[in-house]
Amino acid sequence: MAQTENRLEAETRTEFGKGAARRIRRADKIPAVLYGHGEAPVHVSLPGHATMLALKNVNALLTIVLEGKEQLALAKDVQRDPIKPFIEHVDLVIVRRGEKVTVDVPVHIEGEAAPETVVTLENASLQVEAEATNIPELFTVHVDDLEAGSQILAKEVELPAGTTLLADEELLIVNITQQISEEALEAELAEAEAEAGIEHEESDEEAAEREEAEGEESEREGDSDGEESDSDEG
């Protein structure tokens, strides 16, 4: 499934600096710079809501409309606020129709592996070369009924026509392992904590269980001593 083109009406930006960027964002716009193919960098502002929707898709193909002229571009770098849900700045790189570009495409897992297995996505994306106007949105990997010990490598991921794998062919994408029991997991955790020197305070429940076990042990020892005394008297 290829990306759809997203049309964004841009405006030339003449103010720069943090203050100007804040004013642009308050107006529900996003500061951006457009460059590439030997063109001088052009500083623009993009419509905030429409740009955020478009950039939800990785490798979104954008049609930037500036002063009546259209330019295809890809988002090279998207700077997002670490706390608030907004974009601070976008670097856009110019692309041409028919041009090949290098991109990282997300991997999506579908299906259910065999019972009592764990499916691990070891690498969440694949680096490929594709036409700028026909970049796959994602790669789907099917794991239906696969048993523990099964692995899916990069070379086994189905790519659409016109897309070339650039990642290592032997790169592990999906690994399917045997599900570990709760008891074994707790034992492994306890062993790892012991090796790391981690000690836990005894909970009230654990203390009660320990005291009960010690009491039962004392009773057994008392009974044993009594039997030995009876035998000596005999």
Rank of each mutant, 00 (worst) to 15 (best):
V95D: 11
R97K: 15
E99N: 11
E99H: 11
V103W: 11
D104R: 15
V105Q: 06
P106F: 14
V107F: 04
H108R: 15
I109K: 13
I109V: 15
E110I: 15
G111S: 13
A113N: 11
A113K: 09
A114I: 07
P115G: 11
E116D: 14
T117M: 08
T117C: 10
V119Y: 13
V119I: 14
V119S: 10
T120E: 14
L121E: 02
L121S: 02
S125F: 03
S125Q: 05
E129G: 12
T133V: 09
N134E: 12
N134F: 06
E137C: 02
F139R: 00
T140Y: 05
H142Y: 10
H142S: 13
D144M: 07
D144Q: 10
E147L: 02
A148C: 06
G149H: 05
G149W: 08
I152A: 06
I152F: 08
I152T: 10
L153G: 00
L153F: 02
L153C: 00
E156R: 00
V157L: 04
P160R: 09
A161D: 12
G162W: 01
G162T: 04
T164Q: 11
L166N: 04
L166T: 05
A167K: 09
L171P: 01
L172T: 07
L172I: 05
T177A: 14
Q178S: 14
Q179C: 08
I180G: 09
I180A: 15
E183R: 14
E183Y: 12
A184W: 07
A184N: 14
L185R: 15
E186W: 10
E186I: 11
A187Y: 11
L189A: 12
A190Q: 01
E191H: 04
A192V: 04
E193Y: 01
A194N: 12
E199G: 01
H200N: 06
E202I: 03
E202T: 03
S203F: 00
D204T: 08
